[in-house]
Simulated assay, not measured.
Amino acid sequence: MNFEHILFHIDSGVATLRLNRPKQLNSFNLKMHGEVREALKQVRQSAEVRALLLTGEGRGFCAGQDLDDRNVAPGAEMPDLGESIEQHYNPLIRQLRDLPMPVICAVNGVAAGAGANIAFACDLVLAARSASFIQAFCKIGLVPDSGGTWTLPRLVGMARAKALAMLGERISAEQAERWGMIWRCVDDEALQDEALELARHLATQPTTGLALIKRALNASAGNTFDQQLDLERDLQRLAGRTEDYREGVGAFKEKRTATFKGC
């Protein structure tokens, strides 16, 4: 499938999805939503893909919603933003969180509004030193969406989450790393290479086990301790029946490098 607003390819077990509306700082319109949704569908269905790398083209990662794609002119009927979230942003966030593989995000520039929260929905986030994160919703009278009101308190605590959401201050990549919002801040020129190296490494690992780790951690916020213990038991049962577990134990005993197949 030919895409207009994203760049998408698969190589060495890694699917790379690059948002490609650089003049608009990769902000989302309806067509880009559809293309991202289709690419993520291909990622999930492909037996070849074992890790996803999400990044942006140009000087920004994603500025959230393209406001030019909405009509809020005086006298015009106001759009139903809840419908937009239900039809587009919520499915996108759910697709990213539910992918049975590691999702790496390389934030190459500003990540604002939904763009910031899309990054936070990924598993491992690297950001260029010049990148920044902004909960810009309050600047136009809106509420953080794309999971932001759930993710932010869990990343930085309620006090900082409220300040970020109500003040809309720009947070540098270095500060985001210090606060635990992202995994790592790296030099601009090293970002793409480091992110791709990380994705390629993860694609060689026991990715079924990694998917189960992701599933357990994502479930932990809504579980009691006893429920989480039961979930760990159930997921460990699944992990212990994989060929990768057999290979990992065999490689350990034979003192050789394991060759994992993701199954």
Results as ranks from 00 to 15, higher is better:
N2C: 02
Q236R: 12
G147C: 03
A106P: 11
E243K: 14
E189I: 01
H201R: 11
E86R: 10
I6V: 15
A63I: 00
R170I: 06
T55M: 14
L25G: 06
A239D: 12
N26L: 09
V143P: 00
E254A: 15
T16W: 05
E48G: 02
Q236Y: 05
A47K: 14
M78H: 10
G240Q: 07
V107G: 08
K214D: 09
G115Y: 09
F61E: 05
L67S: 11
C138F: 04
W179G: 03
A112Q: 13
P206M: 04
F120E: 07
R200D: 01
P91T: 02
V186I: 04
A216V: 08
A258W: 06
L198M: 15
S172R: 04
G147S: 04
L53T: 08
Q175G: 00
D80S: 08
T55F: 02
A73K: 14
I171F: 01
T149V: 09
V186C: 02
V14A: 11
G13F: 05
N90V: 03
A39F: 13
Q135L: 07
Q24A: 14
K253Y: 08
L142N: 13
A221I: 10
I171T: 15
K139R: 14
F120Y: 14
M32F: 04
L202K: 01
P144W: 05
A251F: 10
W183C: 09
Q42D: 11
T208V: 01
D226H: 05
T259D: 07
P22S: 05
A106F: 10
T149K: 10
A112V: 13
R160M: 12
L164A: 13
Q205N: 00
E86K: 07
H201Q: 06
S46C: 10
S132M: 08
G34Q: 13
Y245T: 15
R241Q: 15
N20F: 07
A211R: 02
G250N: 15
L238W: 01
A136W: 10
V156G: 05
A199W: 04
N117A: 03
P22Y: 04
M78I: 06
R233I: 08
V72K: 11
I6L: 11
L126F: 14
H9P: 00
G82I: 00
G113C: 15
S46N: 13
I85Y: 09
S12F: 01
L19E: 12
K253V: 11
I213W: 02
N223D: 12
Q135D: 10
P144R: 06
D193M: 04
P102F: 10
V49M: 07
G34S: 11
A219W: 09
W179R: 02
G82Q: 05
V110K: 10
Q95N: 07
L152K: 05
A221T: 13
V249A: 11
L67P: 02
L210G: 00
T208L: 07
I85A: 05
G209K: 03
A116P: 00
A116K: 15
D234G: 00
G34F: 03
F120K: 03
R178S: 13
I85M: 02
A176K: 07
V125H: 12
I134G: 07
W183V: 12
R200H: 04
I140A: 08
D68F: 11
S46Y: 13
K162H: 06
E77C: 01
R184L: 15
L235Q: 08
R233A: 13
E254V: 01
L92M: 13
Q87G: 00
F8L: 06
E38G: 00
C105W: 06
T55V: 02
L124C: 09
M78Q: 15
